[in-house]
Design a protein around this nucleic acid. Sequence first.
DNA 1: GCTATGATTTACAACGATAGAAACGCCGTC
DNA 2: GACGGCGTTTCTATCGTTGTAAATCATAGC
Lengths: 341, 341
Amino acid sequence: MNGSGARGAVTMHDVAAAAGVSVKTVSNVVNDYPHIRPATREKVQRAIDELGYRMNLSARNLRQGRTGIIGLALPELSLPYFAELADSVIRAAEDRGLVVLIEQTSADRQHELDVLTSERRQLTDGLIFSPLELGPDDADALKVPYPIVVLGERIFGGDWDHVTMNNVDGARAATQHLIDRGRRRIAVIGAHAGEAMGSAALRVLGYQTALAANGIPFDPDLVIEGGLWHRATGADCVERMIAGGVEFDAIFGLNDALALGAMHTLHAHRIDVPGSVAVVGFDDIEDAAYASPTLTSISPGREQIAATAIDVLMARIAGGTDPFRRVIADFSLKERESTAS
Amino acid sequence: MNGSGARGAVTMHDVAAAAGVSVKTVSNVVNDYPHIRPATREKVQRAIDELGYRMNLSARNLRQGRTGIIGLALPELSLPYFAELADSVIRAAEDRGLVVLIEQTSADRQHELDVLTSERRQLTDGLIFSPLELGPDDADALKVPYPIVVLGERIFGGDWDHVTMNNVDGARAATQHLIDRGRRRIAVIGAHAGEAMGSAALRVLGYQTALAANGIPFDPDLVIEGGLWHRATGADCVERMIAGGVEFDAIFGLNDALALGAMHTLHAHRIDVPGSVAVVGFDDIEDAAYASPTLTSISPGREQIAATAIDVLMARIAGGTDPFRRVIADFSLKERESTAS
DNA sequence: GCTATGATTTACAACGATAGAAACGCCGTC
DNA sequence: GACGGCGTTTCTATCGTTGTAAATCATAGC
């Protein structure tokens, strides 16, 4: 009853012949053109059902110059934050009738540049791009001839739309939360030296802002460098702190993976969390709620970011010429065991 | 120098005109047709570079009936195992010049059926399908008119290719490992009652096989039902066991998320792992190596599954008519703290 | 009964690429 | 110097759909 024979064998011509109308009428029915006599519409619809007709999207795409596919470029899906982001983006896209092509950049600078000019851009109507390595100097590379929405705050002020989480205020809230619990020696792990505009720099800025607001002196020894924000990195940062004899009573992991890695090392050293050291993360990935102890974290409004990014991108694809937007999502603090008093 | 003007404005006609040759010659150059005079090839190539020509894939797809896109249908990316699987599939696809369109089924039966007949199948050359809810009764739904590779063992023996992990032997090895550590009251969490061929049933079978091989009686009270394999489910399973007064000295989580959720509950109840209760999981997701304590798990050969699935699918897309294959990936036991003696 | 008027439907030409076959050179050969 | 043969290039049709404009039909007004 459905799909017999070779794939895509049934075309509009076949339907038109079966229904005794022209191809264009079939097209009109399929595209909900308003001026069609009900009898005609029904006749065509019946033919479509009987033949099991499916539109050839390649043909439509060729004709319309659209594919209905949007690209999503991110570092890698095995990083939980990005997996969850991709989940949200795919759902938001589906609600709007779009599908998502994911490209992983492996957090590699050249790979991030390549994605912008890849052959695949030809296959997508637009791109949602979450760079990790590109910086302000690469602004020119982002001047691309197709709709693009950039996630994150690495590159400001260019001629493109921007959707981002509130890194500074979120980090400040996380730090303030630790201060409110009586912590004073708050280490921050995963910092990126020499970075001006990345998430790392912005979150460290929020951290410093909170310290200053509470009259707590800033101690550079408490800022631990760490490249890729994997659990292993977080574990290593704490290892180094302990080996270096740094005193601390709290840790702010610049993301949850770092914080979870940190808790792993603390556990290995039999350091009680939150008794001796309180820990807070950033991103509120699903793991945070199921770690032992559960991890307090900043929830960055992932769904809002995904939905907004898609909406902004769709508006651009539709030809919108509004001024470029910069949207900052709302965040919230999820308080859990790792910072219990 | 590149991509000035409207998107995709440069066509083969433009290149042909600029190079002073016919369109077909440009096509021949682009497609590496052998009989082209070097001078011509160079002339065309220069025109391509100068104009920044990119092939219109929709047009090629229409003509060739291929898209170079493969679909990957899975429950959801926020489940770490599937995020990591998607990562592996995307990498394997990229190595072979393909891109991947991910569709989430939310572990919903109707959604899984819909994916098989979706309009989107029109956009993909083939599908890698990882069902969670479909069962043997749905075999007919899998008789689709396009290349498909099914992951997992829910539906055997149909006329399609199959790539799967070794659920039975993996589960047996996990259980044997616990038995070797002296455990006798081994609970298994996340079972699915009434399921014949799913991962749950197969892993439970492996569990029972190991018990039998060691002369340990099977106690149904130690088999805990649990629907979706999220951390929350694992936490809940253990909660119910404790509330029900079930005695146990080890837990086999049917996947890592369940096991991690279980460790969460054990921690909340101040039950020592592995001192009082040893825990082993299945899937070897990245979290397993960073939990506290680190989680022993079965590594199911994810990369091998991804690469094999793509290879088998590509062979089908290319028109291969070999008998349908059933590939079972190799597994290995990753021993970590949660089962230390 | 005939013409506006608007609703329906159709014919035709694209969209940008590739397949197949025909056409064009150029070479050596008889 | 005409003729094959082969490497190279061009011509033409076509993939399945939609935009445009024109054709057809129906209804109402006079």
